[in-house]
Design a protein around this nucleic acid. Structure first.
Lengths: 191, 191, 191, 191
DNA sequence: AATGAATGAGAATTCATTCAT
DNA sequence: CATGAATGAATTCTCATTCAT
């Protein structure tokens, strides 16, 4: 019970920080407010996270893994690259609340904190490989590697843009349409 | 002469603020530092910009117009949609230093300041319309409106992603490849 | 009048800090207390002295000069080295309140702050030279340099010890007696 | 075994505290750091020393005795007061590391903590009596009590000054020279 | 007896903003 | 118009001390 309570308090600090960082930004969020809204004593925040930046670091490390986000097999349907890409996007849920929150944070803080920048770069690379793997498995012919990468880049851009667009307004791009456009461009490797 | 001097000083404040906001973020940049690096008295910053946020507001208003970014005719070559899109991207130069600086700012502050959010939304809308106009003028048939918008969204996503990627790492997407992929998807409106 | 007030406020901060540092120590004296007892707003302390240590630095620089403490002529009576040394001690007034306060500070902080250590070393050197000059001028023969330095060291030690003793208890050494002992040891240079 | 282990841990706390107090000062040394460097659990420090000041108190009580520092017989050679004083200084080893450490502490904290002040006063008194006893035993005539005390004060001042000088710079006084100067002043009691 | 998680009362410092001149 | 001295609320962080186990 205690362990649960303890984990609960540390977890509550992280939950609250995540929400507040996403809403107002890292700099604009006082640790005192995190403590207050997490309903823990101010000192406890610094007990778990000696520097404020450690809260952000921990959020990235524990909640935004750069390790495999999903497995291609989960989403691929052979012969249906467009559908596979759509399922990929739906599975990754980059536009989901949880993900949007973290993306907001990392996009904002990337310029300021190098470690955040590295994290976002790794995440991006992960998305690219994953998309390429999905394309490979979804089409029935061998893909031209250059075109495959272009296609992956394009679809990743759309997925990220969709998540971003959600932050700013409602004009989100049509993922299904983009999936079709990208799939349509896949031709067998003539090499 | 005074006006020139004053304009020079006001301009120096904006130049400096732009640089510092882009580098360290709005919140982390003290007005005192802007004044010092712009080599103007501290009081002058508040003389021109009564609140700190007014500096940011002014940067957006004066330096990141949402009004037509370029005219389609500048970039369109009829019958060559892929080339037209590439020229569009090159003309907009979203990845340029100046633009990156401002994009860094608006991406970071968008979550915090509603007016910045509106600005970015307007900018995005501008880009979409412009891309659609370019596509319309570049192909020789009538485009399906839905597909045109999907294509525009996709290409805008790639342009924005390219600018973003430049902020974080070097793995920038291939704009030419994306232009081809998007163009390849354009078919006459069968309606 | 304003200038007086301004000088007064900065001066009051230094006066108060000097008193409080001497009484409770540098570390144990909050800047807030300095401000309160100097009757100035807290912010003003940091306006004049951006870091707390700057207050200490300023006290040393402005109030504990290492430059000539007095001129030998002021105290020397030729043919009366013992009297001259006594007058030197009386003129330097190391045991005076003002001086004791600063000595308390520098003795305490010397170990912690290198710049304070350098200051105290310089001050010590100054005292030694001055004492040697007084001895030279007070005796009617040429002094052996080694013996002169030994004598100076001995008398400086007594002066410093007297000031220190005043901090701790009442058993202050007898400066007049020490002056006689030291003078008695001065013999012509036989070299 | 437990007692030995406990004594070892208690001793390690004191050793570490002594070192850290001497280096950074009492106030600037967190108990947590003492515990960490002594490699004991944080709680144990407060188990042995309920208040932080108790560590300092214990250091003085157990490691800086005011009881006889050495016996005059150990150092006196009758007829050679100068040599006896030198041997006294060498035996007391005030300039030794261990001693310097504690002296650093007590000099620094004397102003702040009354009990430290009393300790240093007692120590001083001890040194004076001891020096007087050495002088008495070393000379072959009866000393004038006033002159004896003056001589003792002077030599004690030099010994303390030598230890102090070692803390601040390298210009340590010449103890041998001072011993000679002081001895030279000893004349039979004419009373 | 021993421990280390927990706490909260401050500490130094920052900085947007004001305003008298 | 311009300025820079002045202010105080807010912020991050520290740490002696407590206490349940």
């Amino acid at each position: 019970m205690d362990e649960i309570a303890d984990e609960g308090r540390r977890g509550r600090i992280l939950d609250t920080a995540e929400r507040l960082f996403a809403h107002g930004g890292f700099d604009a969020t006082p640790t005192a407010r995190i403590a207050a809204e997490a309903d823990v004593p101010k000192g406890l925040v610094f007990y778990y996270f000696p520097r404020k930046i450690d809260i952000l670091r921990t959020l990235l490390a524990e909640r935004l893994p750069t390790t495999p986000l999903c497995r291609p097999e989960q989403v691929v349907r052979r012969g249906d690259p467009a559908g596979s890409l759509q399922r990929l996007a739906r599975t990754l849920r980059l536009g989901d609340h949880e993900s949007v929150v973290l993306r907001t944070i990392i996009f904002r803080e990337a310029g300021t904190h190098p470690e955040v920048r590295h994290h976002i770069a790794a995440l991006r690379e992960q998305l690219l490989s994953l998309t390429e793997a999905v394309l490979d498995a979804a089409v029935e012919h061998v893909l031209d590697p250059v075109r495959r990468r272009q296609a992956a880049h394009t679809f990743v851009a759309v997925m990220l843009d969709e998540a971003n667009a959600r932050r700013f307004d409602g004009a989100v791009p049509d993922l299904a349409g983009a999936a079709e456009i990208v799939s349509g461009a896949l031709t067998p490797d003539r090499a």
